[in-house]
Simulated assay, not measured.
Amino acid sequence: MFGTVNQLLAALALLIITVYLARKKVKAIYTGIPMVFMIAMTGWAMVFNLQKFYVGGKWLLFVVGLIVFVLEIWMIAETYLVMKKVYSGEDNASAATQNI
């Protein structure tokens, strides 16, 4: 569980950097590819752990893992919405910060 959450934190850092670079109109592919890999591997490991915790009857670990997994899905959904705005041209926040 600790390893999965630790790697999820690394994926979150890559995700934040990727969104930042995308909003600044800089190539975000260099952080985007490792981010996708980290999120995919972390999600796969968490699903594997959740199955193991459920079968083993370790309910506390199951509930904590499920909460972390739901937060991971939420993180992915929010990133998708932000990136959709950035690449469709609806992102006015970066234009507003450049005028300051």
Rank of each mutant, 00 (worst) to 15 (best):
M46C: 06
V47P: 03
F48C: 05
F48L: 03
N49W: 07
N49K: 15
N49M: 07
L50C: 00
L50P: 00
L50S: 04
Q51H: 10
Q51S: 04
K52I: 00
K52P: 06
K52E: 11
K52L: 03
K52G: 02
K52W: 04
F53D: 04
F53I: 02
F53M: 03
F53Q: 09
Y54D: 10
Y54F: 13
Y54H: 15
Y54T: 12
Y54G: 11
V55P: 00
G56F: 06
G56Y: 09
G56C: 05
G57W: 06
G57T: 04
G57D: 00
G57S: 06
K58I: 02
L60Q: 14
L61A: 05
F62L: 14
F62Q: 11
F62M: 12
V63G: 00
V63F: 10
V64Q: 07
V64I: 04
G65S: 05
G65I: 01
G65W: 06
L66V: 03
L66T: 04
L66H: 07
I67F: 08
I67G: 08
F69R: 12
F69H: 14
V70C: 05
L71T: 02
L71I: 01
L71Q: 15
L71P: 11
E72H: 13
E72C: 12
I73H: 11
W74A: 13
W74Q: 15
M75T: 02
M75C: 05
M75K: 10
A77L: 04
A77T: 00
E78C: 03
E78N: 14
E78K: 15
Y80D: 09
Y80W: 14
Y80I: 06
L81T: 01
L81Y: 04
L81S: 06
V82L: 10
M83I: 00
M83S: 08
K84Y: 06
K85H: 07
K85S: 04
K85R: 15
